[in-house]
Design a protein around this nucleic acid. Sequence first.
DNA 1: AATAGATTGTTGACATCGCAACAATCGAGG
DNA 2: CCTCGATTGTTGCGATGTCAACAATCTATT
Lengths: 149, 149
Amino acid sequence: MENDLGHELTRAVLTTADTFLREGQRLFRRHGLTAAQYNVLSLLATGPADGMSQRELGDLLVVDRSNVTGLVDRMEKAGWVRRADDPQDRRVYRVQLTAAGRRLWSEVAPLYAQVVAQVTAALSESQARATLKVLHKLQEGAVAWELPE
Amino acid sequence: MENDLGHELTRAVLTTADTFLREGQRLFRRHGLTAAQYNVLSLLATGPADGMSQRELGDLLVVDRSNVTGLVDRMEKAGWVRRADDPQDRRVYRVQLTAAGRRLWSEVAPLYAQVVAQVTAALSESQARATLKVLHKLQEGAVAWELPE
DNA sequence: AATAGATTGTTGACATCGCAACAATCGAGG
DNA sequence: CCTCGATTGTTGCGATGTCAACAATCTATT
């Protein structure tokens, strides 16, 4: 494959993701949420009932755990999550949704699903599957690279 | 198209872009660059010889012009760019590459090209073209959405 | 049991980002 | 020529992100 096409493809991936994030922010904003906070909400709403540690959240969000501190701080202040002590390990908090958090999730999740439906409306199923396969290959290629000297 | 597939697809776009950014940061870091700074370098290196205004840079980077202030500040301090006065308009600076900036670009650009080549190595040309088409459709879908209410 | 080595969450320094408000400047219409 | 609306770059605030360093705590090994 020639290189110009590769450049165009990687650029398209980046700008498409950027557009998604931008539009997502606009959607969540009316509910006082940011994209990162929506992701936390989503993880907690579909995860184990007793919540998750900040470390787990960081891993699943693919961010450093130091980020999770402030993220949870702000969501706790907003009343959507709570830090419960872990009975097994005194180093960790179990971050859990509050009733208000669950309520917010039930409002926002359908909205997001609707946006996803609209964004992907113009695609056939086979196109979607083929694109998924390509994206996975791209990710493997990026990870496989491993920083040569 | 069913919605689970749509969710998977949008998530794949976001995580793939995230991986690219992460690996890109690792690459640029050894040269003291960030991804945003690499983009500025690229725009200036391939753009008009008398440089670009901060407004133009912001438009092309798809970021608010207030971001460009700090970005150019740091690159100016590093000696890679310079703010020249615009002879036509006293409000604007023409941001230009310095000799050091051009030197840096000549080091970093081939590296980046090599990474792109490697990341896209596993793809056929037809796959790449099909994926490009899908990504464009996704972007149109996101932009077309236009915040109901 | 005691110690050495991981792990967890926090903090501080720095770089992007968006948004809103400002002063300086431009440009068009009277 | 002069005023009024638009544009440019800057600044301040808040959110997200990385990385490095720390204290508290776990865990495994002796």
